Computed example of a mutant assay.
Amino acid sequence: MRKHPFEPGKLVAGLVMLGVALAYALDAAGEWDVRPLVLLPSAAFGLCLAGVVSALTHGLRRRRTAKRETP
């Protein structure tokens, strides 16, 4: 199996979604009272953060590749 590159943006997105899912699960179980007006914007902010992390990762990898190609 071929080794895949590390994708920090996907890691951030996954952790954000797990956090939101955990908050909703705790709310459904009655352990924590969470308003949807708090969780939905936090999920959107987390996904935007994941997009920024992905863009930065792409830029850094592109810069590193360009440095290797120039003599």
Rank of each mutant, 00 (worst) to 15 (best):
L56S: 10
G14P: 11
G14V: 00
A44L: 11
L47M: 08
R61I: 04
V38H: 10
L18H: 03
L56G: 14
K10I: 04
H58C: 09
L47P: 12
R64E: 15
A28V: 01
L37E: 14
P36Q: 13
A25V: 10
L22V: 07
G51R: 03
G30Q: 07
L18F: 05
R64C: 07
V38D: 10
A21M: 04
L49K: 02
A23Q: 10
V20W: 00
L40S: 06
R68C: 04
L56R: 09
A23G: 12
V34D: 04
L47V: 01
A55R: 12
L18Y: 00
R68G: 05
F6G: 11
L26P: 12
R2W: 02
L26M: 13
L49W: 01
R63Y: 08
M1K: 10
L60G: 14
G14S: 08
M1R: 13
R63M: 09
L56A: 09
L15I: 00
R68H: 08
L15T: 01
P71G: 15
L26Q: 12
R2A: 03
L60H: 08
A13I: 03
M1V: 09
P71R: 15
E7I: 05
G46V: 02
M17R: 06
H4D: 14
A43Y: 00
E69F: 00
A25E: 07
H4F: 06
T70L: 14
